[in-house]
């Protein structure tokens, strides 16, 4: 279980412009520095916000990664809903859904 390192990577991306540059230049090379499962690596490479949400990435970290990837707000919320439909309930952490309806 390497959810911790998925979140650490996204934390570093969110707060450090140099890490964002490496993300833009060669994301695969950056990912080598983190102890990730194949599913986690694929979700990151694919920018799969729905799967990352279901894995249990803290929403406050994931929200900014979605913004970095260019997701408009409504699409970001929609991606999480699609992730739940495709992959099932959130597996870890506090950022579970309740009724999933929200404001958008």
């Amino acid at each position: 279980m390497s959810l911790y390192y998925v979140q650490k990577l996204l934390y570093n991306l969110n707060r450090d412009a140099r890490v964002r540059q490496r993300h833009a230049d060669d994301f695969g090379d950056l990912l080598k520095e983190y102890d990730l499962s194949e599913e986690e690596r694929r979700a990151l490479v694919d920018g799969d916000i729905g799967l990352l949400y279901v894995m249990g990435v803290n929403g406050q970290i994931l929200m900014h990664y979605a913004a970095l990837l260019g997701y408009p707000w409504d699409d970001y919320i929609k991606s999480m809903r699609e992730g739940l439909a495709k992959h099932g309930p959130v597996r870890h952490g506090l950022y579970l859904t309740t009724d999933g309806r929200g404001a958008v």
């Binding site: 949400y53 406050q60 999480m80 809903r81 309740t98 929200g102 404001a103 958008v104």
Partner: peptide
């Protein structure tokens, strides 16, 4: 509040 979830706005 339920921010950064599909419930955002609840």
């Amino acid at each position: 509040h339920w921010p950064a979830t599909p419930d955002s706005g609840k």
